[in-house]
């Protein structure tokens, strides 16, 4: 696991606070109006003691254990934590695509991750965060503390998408790591081999995790609005291509549609929630729409 990072540079702090505010705004302004949480936990039993880590709520320190061992232990009660949520946030280089107005896919994805974290923490469920590219680069363990949110946001803000993706490996890795069944939220552009992606997702499901895939794609990637001769410089070691986008558009859109359809179908088959997020649509609108749908389904189910 990577070393804890310093969030003290101004840029990161700024990003972190903006992310936090944004997530709070979305949750307070939009989602809190919902009568019931869209997410439910699975257990109420005592689970374990674990060592105190930065950000743990002081109220959960087992003072008795401290008296005996002179160490800070946190008592983890399953009955206290209804839901264990792990957010897998893609920080591969491809997520860096975007424009100044809309921001990058990573920005968008970060907002989703932060919002979901805040939402879940607010209903006092556990939230963990894994930032990954080829492998899991950062992992923030589960916590229910609201202060944990700041840690999560800080980690996200500090992340810079630079490397290649290897989605399926990451999913396998995480499936092995997450002992308890819970909710796994994948926020990624999934720009990888769809078969591999689905294999990874299937593995998560195999471990009885409830999986939501937020498939974040840029507006440009979904609509391909280029007109002039363009040199497309492939991210993640992909080749360069100079072409007239007007000629390619039709075939490109067909490819994208085939890809998203394949992922969507795979998800549906494995009872995975698949949500295509277009960076052209504001995050709150897209999230609210999804959450409302999910609540409706929960009521039905």
């Amino acid at each position: 696991m990577a070393e804890p990072r310093s969030y003290l540079d101004a840029k990161t702090l700024n990003r972190a606070s903006r992310l936090e505010i944004k997530a709070r705004e979305i949750v307070e302004g939009t989602i809190s109006g919902m009568h019931k949480s869209p997410f439910h936990g699975y257990s109420v039993e005592f689970s374990q003691h674990r060592e105190y880590v930065t950000g743990d709520d002081l109220r959960h320190i087992d003072w008795r254990a401290y008296a005996k061992s002179d160490r800070f232990y946190i008592k983890e009660y399953e009955e206290e934590t209804n839901l264990t949520t792990t957010t897998l946030l893609d920080m591969s280089e491809s997520m860096a695509y975007g424009d100044e107005k809309r921001g990058t896919k990573f920005d968008y994805a970060a907002t989703i991750a932060a919002t979901m974290a805040y939402l879940i923490l607010k209903q006092q469920d556990q939230v963990a965060l894994a930032l990954f590219d080829e492998e899991v680069q950062r992992f923030i363990p589960h916590s229910t503390s609201l202060s944990h949110f700041r840690t999560v946001v800080g980690e996200i803000a500090a992340a810079t998408p630079t490397r290649k993706t290897k989605t399926s490996d990451v999913f396998l890795q995480m499936a092995n790591r997450l002992a308890r069944r819970g909710l796994v939220i994948v926020v990624s552009d999934l720009l990888d081999d769809p078969k591999e992606i689905l294999r990874g997702l299937r593995f998560l499901r195999h471990r009885r995790h409830d999986v939501i895939v937020f498939h974040v794609l840029d507006y440009d990637e979904l609509n391909f609005p280029f007109q002039r001769m363009t040199r497309f410089e492939g991210l993640e070691d992909m080749p360069k291509l100079t072409a007239d986008p007007r000629v390619l558009r039709q075939a490109y859109l067909e490819e994208v549609e085939a890809f998203t359809l394949a992922i969507k179908k795979g998800c549906l088959k494995n009872r995975i929630d698949y949500v295509l997020m277009d960076t052209g649509t504001p995050v709150d609108v897209a999230l609210t729409r999804y959450l409302a749908t999910r609540m409706a389904e929960a009521r039905r189910g």
Partner: peptide, 27 residues
């Protein structure tokens, strides 16, 4: 015209390559 182009860093290159292969000859 072939020399003058806009540079765009592109993530979804895999779709682009597939589309290019499909349309290249006709284009």
């Amino acid at each position: 015209n072939r020399q003058r182009f806009k540079r765009v860093p592109w993530a979804a290159t895999r779709f682009l390559l597939a589309a290019f292969q499909k349309t290249n000859r006709r284009a």
